[in-house]
Simulated assay, not measured.
Amino acid sequence: MDREISRDDNRRALFSRSKHQLNGSGNHSKWLSQPIEESTFDSADYGNFTKSEGDASWISDGNLWGFQLNSNNIQTVGTKNQQFGFFPATRNPTDHWHGYPVIPFSEKNKKYNISIELLEKWVLDGYLSNEDIAIIIKGKIL
Rank of each mutant, 00 (worst) to 15 (best):
T94E: 15
R12I: 11
K110D: 10
I36N: 08
T90S: 03
G54M: 08
G78D: 03
N63F: 13
L124S: 13
F41H: 04
V77M: 06
T79H: 15
K121A: 03
D125H: 02
D45G: 08
N10I: 01
R91N: 13
G99E: 06
L119C: 03
Y112S: 06
Q82E: 08
E117Q: 12
F86Y: 07
K30R: 04
K80C: 11
L32P: 03
S52Y: 11
W122R: 00
K19L: 14
T76S: 08
Y127C: 06
F49Y: 05
G99V: 05
E120M: 12
N70L: 10
K51G: 10
S129N: 09
P35C: 01
F41Y: 04
V123S: 00
G47K: 03
F84K: 05
E53Y: 13
D42T: 02
N72R: 03
I116F: 15
Q83Y: 01
T79I: 15
S115C: 03
D95W: 11
F87N: 05
N70K: 14
W31K: 06
F67P: 01
S57Q: 06
Y112M: 04
L128F: 13
E4M: 12
V77C: 07
S57M: 06
W65I: 15
I74L: 06
G78N: 05
G26L: 06
S6P: 08
L118M: 00
T50V: 09
F105Y: 07
R17V: 14
S60Y: 09
F84V: 00
T94N: 13
Q34F: 10
I5C: 02
S33L: 02
I5M: 02
D9M: 14
Q68T: 07
S6M: 07
Y100N: 00
F67I: 05
S57C: 01
L124Q: 14
K108Q: 13
G78L: 06
I103F: 02
K111L: 04
S129I: 08
S57D: 03
I36Y: 09
I116Q: 14
I59Q: 12
P104Q: 05
H98N: 14
L118R: 01
E38N: 08
Q68D: 05
G66Q: 03
Q34T: 13
Y100L: 03
K111M: 00
G66A: 02
S60H: 10
E37R: 15
F86T: 06
T40W: 09
P88H: 07
K111W: 00
N10M: 03
K121R: 09
T94F: 14
P35V: 02
D9N: 13
W97L: 06
N70T: 13
N63V: 10
L118N: 04
S29M: 01
N130G: 00
T50Q: 10
K121W: 02
S18V: 10
